[in-house]
């Protein structure tokens, strides 16, 4: 079980309190009703799923209930940083 630092609770809490919520920094288009099929496909269906550094959303669903973002290395399974929803994507390198 991982320990995850919740940026709202300001401490590490057990993974059982959290729920993963997919890739981060995919903003819903403001003009979603007007976008093309290709744009909708990119927004809704296509995910990067890289090996190494990923930016993902988590929700502290059984804690403060806030959504937040995390940078995690999928190779080492280490969290590099967690930060509040709406904050910019941090510049980070993966652990390799």
């Amino acid at each position: 079980m991982l320990l995850i630092h919740c940026p709202y609770c300001e401490e590490e809490r057990p993974e059982a309190e959290f729920r993963h919520a997919g890739e981060a920094h995919i903003a819903r288009p403001q003009n979603i009703a007007e976008i093309s099929d290709e744009e909708f496909e990119r927004y809704f269906f296509i995910r990067s799923n890289p090996k190494g550094l990923v930016f993902e959303r988590w929700r502290h669903i059984h804690g403060c209930a806030r959504f937040f973002n995390a940078a995690r290395d999928t190779v080492s399974d280490r969290f590099l940083k967690t930060y509040k929803a709406g904050e910019p994507k941090p510049a980070l390198d993966g652990e390799g």
Binding site: C9, R13, A16, E17, H62, G63, C64, A65
Partner: peptide, 8 residues
């Protein structure tokens, strides 16, 4: 004492 938290 006094601490409170939602948890499982």
């Amino acid at each position: 004492v006094g601490a409170a938290s939602r948890t499982v």
